[in-house]
Amino acid sequence: MAAVTDVLLPTSPDEAVSAFGDGTGVTVVGGGTIVMPEISAGRLRPSRTLLLARAGLAGVKREGGKVTIGATAPLEALVDLPSPVGPCAANVGDIEIRSRATLGGNLCAGEGHGAPRGDLQGALLAVGAQVHSAGSGGETTEPLEDFLAHRRERLVLDVSYDEPAAGAFVALDRPHTHEYTVLAVSAARLADGSVRLAATGAGSWGVRLPAAEAAVADPHEAGEAATQDVTPNDDALASAWYRLQVLPVLVRRALTQLEENA
């Protein structure tokens, strides 16, 4: 741990944004659950580290049908939110991991060693979340789908979404509380009646399931269609083949649960 490193500890969102700059060469640490094992094992030797622990980005606000979650809100602070976001957050790690792991880290997580990361990506895609971030070109607010494409270059500030009329979350049981999610499907019925579906674990990061969404009138058909929406990986937790077998089942269950929660 003797490596010389520049450590920045901003005490306000503005300070965090200016410390991040355009993000070049900056390693961002939210709760540390992803970065610290890399540092401890010597795989990562950051030259410039931005610790967000005191940056004042941990708020969770739920009012007027709108939810706003700060970048460093711990996942444990989200577990009581309505489905799919709350149950999805509750399905991550154990209480001590959830108390440290942050929303921002979850959205910006790399692909991981042999398993997909970023559980909340699926749930937040389903509810149509908007990501407010900083970086090169200044602050932007954009749909999560767009954010995920360049997530490693941005500093998440907060995420917001309109509460859906109904939500659902179904996941394969994890073999152990510390395992990453093998496969999960989130569903949301928005205020306009449209249904959005997204999966975690069906690729390197969370993906929407547009072909399945187009077929939601028939859950069986929607389940089969979902397999066209994803390119799952073989990894330590499951094979791509297995994930493609299970995905239609989870989509059907999610749509059934969505009806029950309506």
């Binding site: 094992a41 790690g93 510390h178």
Partner: peptide, 27 residues
């Protein structure tokens, strides 16, 4: 030392945390 076993758990301001995952500057 990667947050997966629980043996390093301590209380920080009364809350249980994995001390292997916490950079000391953050606390």
């Amino acid at each position: 030392q990667q947050g997966g076993c629980g043996a390093c758990t301590v209380l920080v301001d009364g809350k249980p945390v994995r001390s292997c995952l916490v950079p000391v500057a953050a606390v």
